[in-house]
Design a protein around this nucleic acid. Structure first.
Lengths: 112, 112
DNA sequence: ATCGTACTTTGATGGATGTCGTACGATGCT
DNA sequence: AGCATCGTACGACATCCATCAAAGTACGAT
């Protein structure tokens, strides 16, 4: 029998089309402060970041979970670069599907 | 000993100052679809509505709970008119504290 | 006074989800 | 080959929260 190849880029499950994502799912993703931190840092950095370069107040396995939720919600795109998993904010797509949302949530000096 | 009077307007606990509310709390309030429905209807109606005039897919006690959460999050103001509890969206205050947020969340044709 | 209306309070319950530790997988470097 | 790095997968666990039914409170009308 054929064994699943799954080499190269195939290590990441397909990303959802952003148009199929509802506001509900996006909000559920963004309501978690850790996930909002991730999005904020990607937004501010204006470049893709490896999971490891964002330091989060949670364990590694929990961090993985949060990146997963963000990916499923259509907010980030992930790809591998060597052993590093890179994260890209899907900014334009988000802005098109949910105008004003990112800006309202992320472009704040959060002292919270 | 004096018994608490609690007549007239005093039936509603004090409303929080909107400046003391964090984005986190506001998001937690708005992530629930029932609560977003309430806010949306108040937004669209452009006038205060009694609890009873918004029909929600939940029991009355659950509805009370949702109005409570919205009030604590600084999103609505409540007052009595006879036996009806009226709800006012604190629109300008919200817009000032969280610019763009209401618009992004509510001004969508939600088929979700 | 009694009744109806409108909503609240209380207590219980169930389901979802954020959290972690440990084990595992994939890649790159020496 | 061997090892370190980077991150995932799998349970397990605790907490939080939306939900409801039932009983209670406040007000207005009859």
């Amino acid at each position: 029998m054929a064994v699943a190849r799954r080499s190269g880029q195939e290590r990441i499950p397909p990303h959802p089309d952003i148009q199929t994502i509802g506001l509900q799912q996006v909000l559920e993703a963004l309501v978690d402060p850790v996930r909002r931190q991730i999005v904020s840092e990607l937004y501010a950095a204006r470049q893709d970041l490896a999971c490891g370069t964002i330091d989060l107040p949670v364990s590694k396995s929990t961090a993985t979970h949060h990146f997963h939720v963000l990916r499923e919600a259509g907010l980030i795109r992930q790809y591998y670069a060597g052993t590093s998993r890179m994260n890209a904010l899907r900014r334009d797509e988000i802005d098109e599907a949910f105008p004003g949302l990112l800006r309202a949530l992320v472009a704040r000096r959060d002292r919270e």
